[in-house]
Nucleic acid binder design. Structure first.
Lengths: 180, 180
DNA sequence: GGAGTATCCTAGCGATCGTTATTAAACTAT
DNA sequence: ATAGTTTAATAACGATCGCTAGGATACTCC
């Protein structure tokens, strides 16, 4: 998972995976099938672990708390010190050769699921819950996911964690408050 | 440029470039050097053409006009109908194998230049120019760039142009206005 | 018109890609 | 102890990678 995270799907060679997993190539193929199946397993593990920052934000009671939790935990995930920088689901297979088109679509589908998931959570929110006036829940959800993905891109560029937290705070500052 | 744009640096094989350019491999190598030099030339061409959406926004007089121009022209660039989806500078080499590390750093540097460029433009802006109160220009610049990069990721996922324009509008709605 | 020069493609270089057939080793069970 | 079965590694498969030598072609200039 860490190797795929750092180098992406096509950027990771089987030789690196054998070294990282401590298994020989035939053992990997016997256990997982092929490289694509192994990658999907790695993504599942990622989503259940470091990539679960969206789930953590869903049970927040207000828009502002949700946004705050989402953005800051996302920053911790994509700019963690003990893990590769960026997000596996974003940089795993963003632009790849035609032979990896299935993997690209798989990750794209996963990213879209995050948008709908977040939109479903925002929809019941009213202005009393801090939802900015005149905002479409699905557009706001897509905005937040886009921002998280942008933070992931910048983390992959090497932007320090503090700068990304400042971006999160800036976004929260921009959001209209309930009682101002 | 279009081929690199669609498939990324490592995802593009020389065979595709010979087909797209109508030149044989030796001609390409004689004219450009190696694949990396050709990629940099393609990026330069991209930055001077479809990727110049940031430059277009810099001469706007107010924060709101700048943001509006930046986001909507960025959406047009990353979700254009006659070009590949996404942004070459984002998806060209986000997570790659170690042998392409130089290309990855090159694009990361380019992305960071966009942040400093935008921050320099926002810095002289005061509250009278629509700068949200209590915002740090460099953090706001990084926020906007992150959002653009996130829009590029979603465009690469196949999200339709209208949805991305709605995200841009949502962000503008969230920004505090001068006279409200 | 013909020698010299520049241009460009065909063919193939070594290396590495993902993948697998073959073989050696270790464990289980009679 | 030994036969049978599972496990895993060595070695190599065809394909493709970026890249380039060698040769055929066209163009220039005396």
């Amino acid at each position: 998972m860490l190797t795929f995270w750092a180098r992406g799907y096509e950027g990771t060679a089987m030789a690196e995976l054998t070294a990282a997993m401590g298994m020989s190539a035939p053992s990997i193929y016997a256990a997982f099938g092929d490289k694509e199946a192994l990658f999907r397993k790695a993504v599942e593990r990622y989503m259940a672990g470091p990539g679960a920052y969206l789930q953590a934000a869903l049970d927040q009671p207000t828009t502002e708390a949700l946004v705050r939790t989402l953005l800051h935990s996302a920053v911790e995930a994509v700019a963690g010190e003990s893990t590769p920088h960026g997000c596996l689901v974003v940089q795993g297979a963003l632009a790849v050769s035609p032979r990896s088109a299935e993997v690209r679509k798989y990750l794209a589908r996963l990213r879209e699921e995050g948008v709908t998931c977040l939109a479903d959570r925002l929809r019941p929110f009213s202005a009393a819950d801090g939802l900015p006036s005149g905002s479409d829940p699905s557009a706001l959800a897509r905005l937040l996911v886009a921002l998280v993905q942008g933070l992931a891109v910048q983390a992959a560029s090497g932007v320090p964690r503090e700068a990304l937290h400042a971006v999160a705070d800036q976004m929260i500052t921009c959001l209209p408050r309930r009682a101002d």
